[in-house]
Design a protein around this nucleic acid. Structure first.
Lengths: 148, 148
DNA sequence: TACAAAAATGTAGGTACTTACTAAAAATAA
DNA sequence: TTATTTTTAGTAAGTACCTACATTTTTGTA
């Protein structure tokens, strides 16, 4: 928390109002938690799917390939706590719960989707490097030019 | 790998040339690995720091708060294998290794930095939701309007 | 009288991530 | 001679993540 400045005149002001811009390079900054939630294995995919439209829990589970119920529920809780996802549960049996993005979540999802899109379209270029790894071995390192 | 189409006339063509656009929502797509590397706990921060300029190993370690040597080395290896990071080792004692971004890595870093910047500037808005979590409890769920 | 439905929750167990610590190498400074 | 420097590999140990399975609820259906 050493990255957050708290001025003397901020007494009485809610903690949220005091928070300065986060600094991800500082180990103790709370923004690290947000980054963790947004870039988690399933967080990224959930944001992308929810950006398209509202989903029910099991719809979401089908849309995101390979996610377990446990992890999906946990991921959604994190995103909800960060104000990214809105959860609306209808008190009926069987349960009916709808998940959608908040305005905040929509901003985040856009950034995440840009990255995801880039990965998907760049995959061929990236995959080209995977083969090199095996072919390497000989001239791996450069010769020393000057001993620093 | 069911998301990758291989046409009959692609025999003999290197695997990298055959790779179609990735699909992150498919559980078996190799793009999932790239996403994992780029959005890993330290991968994001390394990309952001390297986007500014080339760094030596220990410079990088100091710049990225909280990373251990082990994890930094591992993260750099992953990014190097994906063609994001260029590693130049001078054969001197003590060792001197320089890490920088490839053109591919620079593209990825830009996307990642946009997300990171958004998180840092949005932290106050996000933090506002963290307090709600405790204050909740009463009217958590909506009343059923229609039983589906 | 079972059984299925939807969304979680709880637990046990395994896997993967992380850290801390040790080791290496050769030249230079003390 | 000993300590220091820089980067990385290796190991053991701890922690966190993740999956699989069982459980819950109540209405409607076979």
């Amino acid at each position: 928390m050493s990255n957050i400045e708290i001025s003397p005149e901020s007494r009485g002001v809610p903690l949220s109002e005091q928070l300065a811009r986060g600094d991800l390079l500082a180990a103790a900054c709370p923004s690290r938690d947000v980054l963790k939630h947004l870039t988690s294995r399933w967080g990224v995919l959930v944001l992308i799917v929810l950006e398209r439209r509202m989903h029910r829990f099991s719809e979401l589970r089908r849309a995101v390939g390979g996610v377990s119920e446990r992890m999906l529920a946990q991921t959604l809780q994190h995103l909800e706590q960060d104000g990214m996802v809105a959860r609306v549960a209808y008190q009926v049996v069987p349960p009916h719960v709808e998940y959608s993005l908040t305005p905040l979540g929509r901003e985040a999802a856009e950034k995440v989707r840009v990255l995801a899109d880039w990965i998907e379209t760049s995959l061929p270029r990236i995959a080209r490097h995977w083969e090199k790894r095996n072919a390497a071995g000989a001239v791996e390192d450069m010769q020393a030019t000057q001993p620093l």
